[in-house]
């Protein structure tokens, strides 16, 4: 479903031309939950950007649900993104729209019929436990609540994979637990989740797969540990 094959990414303007990713190969299966960890600058965000094709690899191939970085056309990328849900550390909400307005926005811009929007919006807001604050503006909501709005916006198009870039980075412990719980629920319902995070406690508290990056290379992938241990046996 998601496949990185020998992917190297070099930002031409980066100091010294260092590679942000070097020869990275991994896959994410349908319905899988994967943590991406590693220090800042390790390449976590680059992997996510390559996944939603905001960036193209310098070499290698990224395949996402039938789209390949090798031959995807610029005008096909919106089509791919409609199948993805993306949330960020800084929520990326529109301040002049209410919670429901922000969720509806994701439907409006892809041409969803007007009559279908209210139902979908209210279902998504209910799913993230924010139905009672549908009319509130982002400025009137706590960080955790704002992230839930962003969450609802990501879910409203029924994505097959949810991409979360440090979604709990700006949240306190309680809100972090709430968001993580939501991610687990979404995953349990069948959506794959790829979450970049610094929060090792969160990683340790679950037995989801974890890929650790350092200096643009995969230094650890928990999916490969059992295989190695079998060999050692």
């Amino acid at each position: 479903m998601v496949r990185f094959q020998k992917v190297t990414k070099i930002y031409p303007r980066a100091a010294g031309g260092a590679a942000a990713l070097r020869d990275v190969t991994f896959g994410v299966a349908k319905g899988e939950f994967v943590f991406l960890t590693g220090p800042s600058g390790a390449g976590k965000s680059t992997i996510l950007k390559l996944l939603y094709m905001d960036e193209r690899p310098s070499s290698g191939e990224v395949r996402v649900s039938g789209f390949s970085s090798r031959d995807v056309k610029r005008r096909e990328i919106p089509e791919l993104r409609r199948k993805l849900g993306i949330i960020f550390q800084d929520f990326q909400l529109l301040e002049d729209r209410t919670a429901e307005g922000n969720v509806a926005f994701a439907l409006e811009v892809i041409g969803t019929p007007k009559s279908a929007i209210p139902n979908k919006v209210s279902r998504a807001l209910t799913q993230v436990g924010l139905a009672s604050k549908a009319r509130a503006y982002p400025g009137e909501l706590s960080g955790g609540e704002q992230q839930r709005v962003a969450f609802a916006r990501a879910l409203v198009n029924d994505p097959f994979v949810l991409i979360a870039d440090e979604p709990t980075g700006n949240l306190d412990e309680r809100a972090t637990r709430g968001i993580f719980q939501l991610l687990r629920e979404v995953n349990a319902a069948g959506t794959a989740v790829l979450m970049a995070t610094h929060n090792l406690e969160l990683v340790r508290s679950s037995d989801y797969r974890c890929i650790e990056l350092n200096h643009g290379e995969i230094v650890f992938d928990s999916a490969e540990v059992p295989a190695i241990s079998v060999e050692m046996d």
Partner: peptide, 10 residues
């Protein structure tokens, strides 16, 4: 940028 993320066409 949000429009592009949620799949709006150019």
């Amino acid at each position: 940028s949000i429009m592009r993320l949620v799949g709006a066409t150019d």
